[in-house]
């Protein structure tokens, strides 16, 4: 796999999984405003994932859907940070903050890269991520000093640079559920 495909898959896998993890707050976020915010963020992230998978698919001679759904767990290149199932607000916000920081560095590097196709995608993504960063920063300010939040940050920080070649325990259940409908009629149109 070439470097472009590798970078795109890492980006796409992260965005797909974090998008889905954020959508876990659908209908149950602490406030209605956050229900709206989280469903909007989730939608953006999944949109970014699709755009990155489409470019990767061109490199690899496959389709975006096949990359997103039909790979074996060992073939995904997601960060362990986005695989974790964290349905409590302190951890969710801690992950959002850590993810947006790491994602910003990545997107900036991609924008600077000499690869115009990848840089173009990165610029497009960056426009929406700016709002996600504001959202994460706002929450970090509100929760700064709260022991629950600080502890969650400390707990999750080591995952940021975790090994992308192995999957966390939480991935199996996620992958199983994510592919459950698709597996019932392999190759079918949905």
């Amino acid at each position: 796999m070439n470097e472009r495909a590798r970078l795109l898959l890492e980006l796409a896998d992260d965005e797909l999984l974090v998008g889905w993890r954020d959508s876990e707050w659908t209908g149950i976020a602490p406030t209605l405003e956050e229900d709206v915010a989280f469903s909007s963020i989730a939608q953006n992230e999944i949109g970014h994932a699709r755009a990155a998978y489409e470019l990767a698919a061109r490199e690899l001679g496959t389709t975006a859907d096949e990359l997103a759904f039909d790979r074996a767990p060992g073939e995904y290149r997601s960060s362990p940070l986005v695989e974790l199932r964290l349905v409590d607000w302190a951890h969710t916000i801690a992950r959002r903050c850590l993810y947006e920081q790491a994602d910003r560095a990545r997107i900036e590097a991609l924008m600077q890269s000499g690869d115009e196709v990848v840089a173009g995608l990165a610029r497009k993504i960056d426009r929406e991520e700016a709002y996600h960063r504001m959202h994460a920063e706002l929450w970090a300010e509100r929760l700064r000093g709260d022991p629950r939040f600080e502890q969650a940050l400390a707990e999750l920080r080591p995952y940021v640079d975790g090994d992308r070649r192995t999957r966390t325990d939480d991935f199996a259940a996620l992958h199983d559920e994510m592919t459950s409908v698709r597996r019932t009629a392999p190759g079918a149109e949905w």
Binding site: L16, G19, W20, S23, T26, S39, A42, Q43, I46, G47, A49, R50, Y53, A64, D65, A68, F69, L174, E177, M178, S180, V181, R182, W190
Partner: peptide, 15 residues
């Protein structure tokens, strides 16, 4: 949203 069988369906459902 998680079980949606394609990216397009997943996006439509989140929207």
């Amino acid at each position: 949203i998680l079980r949606a069988p394609t990216l397009q369906r997943k996006l439509a459902l989140t929207a």
